[in-house]
Design a protein around this nucleic acid. Structure first.
Length: 499
RNA sequence: GCCCCCAUCGUCUAGAGGCCCAGGACGCGGCCCUUUCAAGGCCAAAACCGGAGUUCGAAUCUCCGUGGGGGCACCA
């Protein structure tokens, strides 16, 4: 089989989060890569919920994950709410399957029941740490005869199933990003694969499911690198073929010193950013921007790094994934978000900013927004910028800061005088179009000896209520003559009251 | 303490022995455009962690050091 054929073999990939919290950037990127690989090869992208730790499961988390994936455009082909040929896709609904497999491991001599109590294990670990030894299961129950074990199980004694790690030799596991990883087996202990509540741990559940669901490429966080050899041993104990494994580097906080912490996450929010997908949506980020940005962290694209989903699908390759941790750079997210906003067709952008006006209690019609969007587009970094930039279009009146109405280098009375003059000029214009208003005002600027910034500045603040606004004359044409004159009149009044 | 992984501009990265006195992107600085703010265009500054090897030749290969990250649960 040549390389070309290989890359076209449909991949089955999966995103397998546990529903214990918010969907975050790391998860989003893992899902993105898995999605890209599946789509590129004409394969399937699967969502599997790893909820075997019942105590840690958070209500609503699963829904948030599904909503988040859909918002990002990472539509899964198989999953809890869409079904599929390998379901169910929630691990708690597959417990019988894990029991069967755990038994198989015991029968084949690859695993054994362990009756050690949590108390004993804690004591053991504490003693080991006191002796500066690595905390590790001492293998007490590994020595039990199958007969003894069977008797205790029959007696109803509470127990777990542990995987029997080889004591001798080394395990060589191949990570697609890093190459062969070799670890001495003596560094491992016998991990629990089935808990006393009858549910599996990750080590068993993930291996069984990846096999049963015929996953071809396992893309997961590099946090799993430590237990990677264990997983490989489990897969081999079953006699299964291994998938291609790729351990994705972790995201570091912006400083590059350590993983994102709660504290850092809070800092980011204050700054209008977040590591949580649900926040990103509310903060006005676009799926296009987020995907492009986080996809680029850990993936070495030679050039042309502004990409939409189709382009990412075409260009993605697990061969160009990078092994080193990446520090999050929110400034770059801003850049990509702004870039993708500018790439959006007007109707699309209108639809996306509308909710932000609605939420602010402003009724913005599609017609109006369609006119305004071209003025806004290149000034937006996030979608909610539209509200800040263009709220004045939809308000009955504006209330500028009186001081802002005073032109640079002039005083209030002089500014009021200018505003009055501008009013007169505009009143004289039957239709307040850009074509008529602008030349008239420029002529005034010329004859008055003032500069454009002074005159247009007063007008801008009077009409928009803001020092920074979209292009003035285009905006005025949309606002309409009546409102403009009223606002200008109000500005003259405000200016006159300043002593 | 033990184990594993990583190491190119501030950040994300290109680079798979000569194409590299190291390329792109973000950010930063400057200039142009300009009614504000942006966007856009142009220009600039900015890096191969250190030390030994291997080689005619190393950012690229090997070893050591250092630094950083991750892991060592009946959590994932």
């Amino acid at each position: 089989m040549d390389i070309y054929t290989l890359t076209l073999t449909p991949a089955r990939t999966r995103f397998a989060p546990s529903p214990t919290g918010h969907l975050h950037l790391g998860g989003a990127r893992t899902a993105l890569y898995a999605y890209l690989l599946a789509k590129q090869t004409g394969g399937k992208f699967i969502l599997r919920i790893e909820d075997t730790d019942v105590k840690r499961t958070v209500p609503g988390a699963e829904q948030e994950i599904m909503d988040g994936l859909r918002w990002l455009g990472l539509e899964y082909d198989e999953g809890p709410d869409v079904g599929g040929p390998c379901g169910p896709y929630r691990q708690t609904e597959r417990r019988d399957l894990y029991n069967v497999h755990a038994s198989r491991l015991v029968q084949s001599g690859h695993a054994y029941p362990c009756f050690c109590t949590p108390e004993r294990l804690t004591q053991m670990r504490e003693a080991q740490q006191a002796r500066k030894e690595a905390p590790r299961y001492d293998g007490l129950c590994r020595k039990l005869t199958p007969e003894d074990a069977a008797k205790r199980i029959a007696a109803g004694e509470r127990h777990v199933i542990r995987f029997k790690m080889p004591h001798e030799g080394a395990t060589v596991a191949r990570d697609h990003i890093r190459g062969d990883i070799s670890v001495e087996n003596k560094n491992f202990d016998d991990a629990v694969v089935l808990k006393s509540d009858g549910l599996p741990t990750y080590h068993l559940a993930a291996m069984v499911d990846d096999h049963e669901m015929q996953i071809t490429h396992v893309l997961r966080s590099s946090e799993w690198l430590g237990t990677f050899p264990l997983h490989v041993n489990i897969v081999r104990a079953f006699g299964w073929d291994e998938p291609i494994w790729a351990h994705l580097s972790v995201f570091l906080k912006p400083s590059g010193k350590g993983k994102m912490s709660k504290r850092e996450a809070a800092e980011a929010i204050k700054d209008g950013h977040s590591i949580f997908v649900k926040d990103l949506l509310e903060l006005g980020f676009t799926p296009e921007g987020v995907n492009n940005w986080c996809g680029l962290m850990g993936w070495g694209v030679p050039e042309d790094d502004v990409m939409n989903m189709d382009q990412m699908i075409q260009r993605f390759s697990i061969d160009s994934l990078t092994p080193s941790p990446a520090a999050i750079n929110f400034a770059k997210l801003d850049h990509f978000n702004g870039t993708h906003i500018r790439l959006l067709p007007t109707a699309d952008l209108v639809a996306r900013i509308k909710p932000f006006f609605t939420r602010a209690g402003l009724s913005a019609s599609d017609e109006m927004l369609t006119q305004i969007v071209p003025l806004l587009r290149e000034r937006m970094v996030t979608l909610d910028d539209a509200l800040e930039l263009a709220g004045f279009f939809f308000r009955e009146s504006v209330s500028p800061n009186a001081q802002d109405l005073i032109a640079k280098g002039l005083d209030a009375p002089r500014s009021a005088e200018i505003a009055r003059r501008v009013y007169q000029i505009l009143v004289g214009q039957p239709a307040l179009s850009q074509a008529s208003a602008e030349p008239a005002l420029r002529a005034y600027v010329e004859e008055s000896g003032l500069n454009v910034n002074q005159v247009f500045g007063i007008l801008r603040v009077a009409v928009t209520g803001q020092k920074i606004s979209p292009p003035l004359f285009e905006s005025m044409e949309i606002i309409g003559r009546e409102k403009i004159l009223a606002r200008l009149d109000a500005a003259v009044n405000a200016l006159s009251k300043i002593v």
